[in-house]
């Protein structure tokens, strides 16, 4: 549905997006991650046809965004960063304008507005002017705008920004539900959100794609992924190590110190994805007759992976704007 091919965007002499390519199919929710100023919003603006690219091509459902912008744009619902809207119009008036601009009229327009208001729970504020609304309502009004003509493609720049935890939950459910049939791109800073809604993740850093895969694969990149941690008060490290190092697929065994009166050990596998190390360790513990209070497999920490694959230059100039 969305196909971006070697996108390049220069702002004057500054390279903001450098050869980004990816594809999103219907039924996919693509999480778009990256540090501030990595080129996320710039890329999204190019996909939606707001910014012209310096080079590269974008095809939206077969329509080229540069050569056939009207056809391409009519298939995209876009929630820009900071959810802009016209403050002096009412929620209903604003949605009515967007519906008309997207080519809806008469009963179809009426139904589309009702549907969007219902989905985004704007019933209570539909006659209020937008500048009197709270941030969460403003955000949802702009989201309603994006989905109003039920487009096959959604581009959402930080869709849960400014929402309270309940609203975030609702929004994620909504996106996940829509992602079953639509092609969706979501940019976010919240890593747990990626796991909650995305079927695939693209991480860009300094304008380049540095990761493209599933959230599970991203976790797998963590050095801790697959490590089995055991907490026990009965066994000392030497005993444990001697017994555990003979298990298959064990790279090393670590003494993680004490938590209260419990000893903590970690068994690191050679390959994170191989077999069931936790099962082997448990079988060994049972055979020895050692009891334990905790035994679990680390799935890897997303934020660690994120930090390790993106450069850590906080406060670096923003490439966007």
């Amino acid at each position: 549905m969305i196909k971006a091919d070697s996108l390049v965007k220069m702002f004057g002499p500054k390279l903001a997006v450098d050869g980004v390519s990816f594809e999103v199919k219907a039924g996919e929710v693509l999480g778009f991650l990256g540090p501030n100023g990595a080129g996320k919003s710039t890329t999204m603006r190019m996909i939606t046809g707001y910014l012209p690219m310096t080079s590269g091509t974008i095809t939206i459902d077969g329509a080229d965004i540069v050569n056939n912008p009207i056809a391409a744009k009519s298939r995209i619902g876009y929630l820009p960063e900071n959810a802009p809207s016209y403050p002096e119009s009412t929620v209903e008036g604003f949605l009515s304008f967007i519906a008309e601009a997207k080519g809806l009229a008469g009963q179809a327009k009426h139904d589309a507005i009702e549907h969007a208001i219902g989905l985004c729970q704007l019933e209570k504020v539909r006659h209020q002017t937008i500048d009197t609304l709270s941030k969460g309502y403003k955000h949802r009004t702009c989201f309603a705008q994006a989905i109003i003509n039920d487009p096959p493609i959604l581009v959402l720049d930080e869709p849960t920004d400014g929402l309270d935890p309940n609203q975030k939950h609702e929004m994620r459910n909504l996106i996940r539900e829509m992602g079953k049939t639509k092609a969706i791109i979501v940019s976010t800073h919240i890593l747990e959100e990626v796991e909650a809604i995305c079927t695939r993740v693209v991480i860009i850093d300094k304008g380049k794609v540095v990761f493209n895969g599933t959230p599970a694969e991203l976790r797998g990149r963590s050095p801790e992924a697959g490590t089995v941690t055991i907490a026990t008060s009965k066994v000392e490290y030497q005993e444990f190590e001697a017994a555990a190092k003979v298990l298959p697929n064990v790279a090393k065994i670590l003494d993680k110190g004490k938590d209260g009166n419990r000893n903590l050990f970690a068994v690191v596998p050679r390959k994170a994805t191989e077999t069931c190390l936790a099962g082997d360790v448990k079988a060994m513990m049972d055979a020895k007759g050692w009891s334990f209070v905790e035994l679990h497999t680390e799935t890897g920490k997303l934020d660690e992976v994120f930090r390790s694959i993106t450069s850590n230059e906080t406060g670096e100039k923003k490439a966007e704007e």
Partner: peptide
């Protein structure tokens, strides 16, 4: 200033 330019120019409107 309000960012609505971005909305306007991502509509199917020239």
């Amino acid at each position: 200033k309000q960012g609505t330019l971005e909305l306007l120019f991502t509509m199917p409107i020239t």
